[in-house]
Structures are given as structure tokens and as C-alpha cells.
């Protein structure tokens, strides 16, 4: 047998990488799922994307620059992956067509359901979920994940002043929305 066929060192590294992903999943998988949901607003899609994100991390782990924080690195991969999905052919052509059907009012809708839907509209979180993506992602990262502007800037590659402007604008949009609906 060739010596290379049983690489003790490589095996150790492989086991390590598996362990790192395991730890990352235990620590962050729910949060990454919430992040993905914030982008795509669909539970099943968010779960699929989260699964893909951790596999991607495993593949990219060798490229992880030790100088960066692993959390920021993970969030950045996650954010990019979700945005790539939203730009993908599948999402734009297939999912959007399904969405259009959702907007066609259905007469069979229960009165009760409508009342619930209406009261949900007033909730803050639903208002946030209705914001355009560039505001939604930053509001989520800042107020839900409680990340600093520097961290958000590293994750989204948006510069800090732009992030500040977007937060301010998001608040204005939200205020108008809440007033409109009362």
C-alpha cells in the first residue's frame, strides 16, 4: 500500500474540518436559518439554503483566513449565498410566477383569516419583512443579530456610511407604513 493512501495528517485535518462545521451548526444554524428566511421569506427555501450554506463553508474552510472572525466569515457566505439565490434563474422565473398567483385575491378566503392577516400587517416584524432587501438585511443584522456596523460592513461589503443611511431610511419607510395602515 502506498503511504499516501493513509495520510494520518490529512485524516486529522479532515476530521477537524468536520468537527468545525459541526460546532458551527450547533452554534449558528438557527440564526443562519433566520437570516436566510429574512432574505427569501419562505421556510422550506430558507432551510434548503441553510443546508447548502454549511456545505459551502465546509468546502471553503481551507480558505478561511484566520485573521477574520469565523462568525463574520460564516455570515458573509450565508448572505452571499442567499443573494445569489434571489438572482438565480429559478427564483426569478419560477418562484416569482407562483408569487403573482398569491396576489390575485381569492374570494374563498375566510373572513377570519383576513382579520388575522390584517392584524399581522400591523406587527412590527411583518412590516420589517416587507421592506426592500437592502434595508431588510441591515435591519435584521443590526437589530436582531445585534451586530456592530463594522461587522455588518464586513458581511455585506457595504460601507459604514451607506449602512447608516439605510438604517435611517428603513426607519422612515417603516414609520410611513405603520401610519398608512392605522
Amino acid at each position: 500500500m502506498h503511504e499516501l493512501e493513509q495520510w494520518p495528517v490529512a485524516d486529522e485535518i479532515i476530521a477537524d474540518r468536520e468537527q468545525i462545521i459541526d460546532q458551527l451548526m450547533n452554534e449558528y444554524s438557527d440564526r443562519i436559518l433566520h437570516l436566510a428566511f429574512t432574505y427569501v421569506r419562505n421556510r422550506a427555501t430558507a432551510e434548503d439554503l441553510t443546508q447548502e450554506i454549511f456545505i459551502k463553508c465546509y468546502e471553503k474552510l481551507a480558505q478561511f483566513n484566520q485573521q477574520a472572525s469565523i462568525k463574520t466569515w460564516l455570515y458573509r457566505i450565508a448572505s452571499n449565498h442567499c443573494k445569489d439565490y434571489l438572482k438565480s434563474w429559478h427564483y426569478r422565473k419560477v418562484t416569482l410566477n407562483e408569487k403573482i398567483l398569491d396576489y390575485i385575491p381569492s374570494k374563498s378566503k375566510h373572513v377570519e383569516e383576513e382579520i388575522i392577516a390584517k392584524s399581522e400587517k400591523h406587527s412590527l416584524s411583518n412590516a420589517v419583512m416587507g421592506l426592500p432587501i437592502k434595508y431588510r438585511e441591515i435591519v435584521f443584522l443590526h437589530y436582531y443579530e445585534e451586530l456592530t456596523l463594522v461587522e455588518i460592513s464586513k458581511i455585506t461589503t457595504v460601507n459604514i456610511n451607506t449602512i447608516k443611511t439605510r438604517l435611517k431610511r428603513a426607519k422612515e419607510l417603516l414609520k410611513n407604513k405603520m401610519i398608512e395602515e392605522v
Binding site: M25, S29, D30, I32, L33, H34, F37, R43, A46, E47, T50, E120, S123, L124, S125, N126, V128, M129, V139, Y143, Y144, E146
Partner: peptide, 15 residues
């Protein structure tokens, strides 16, 4: 927002 989202949009949303 954080507690509001936990109770609504992210409710039972676990990996």
C-alpha cells in the same frame, strides 16, 4: 424588534 420577530416570523423556525 428582536423579541417581536422571535414571537412572530421566526416562531418555531429551527434548523
Amino acid at each position: 424588534l428582536k423579541s417581536s420577530m422571535k414571537k412572530t416570523v421566526f416562531k418555531n423556525l429551527l434548523f
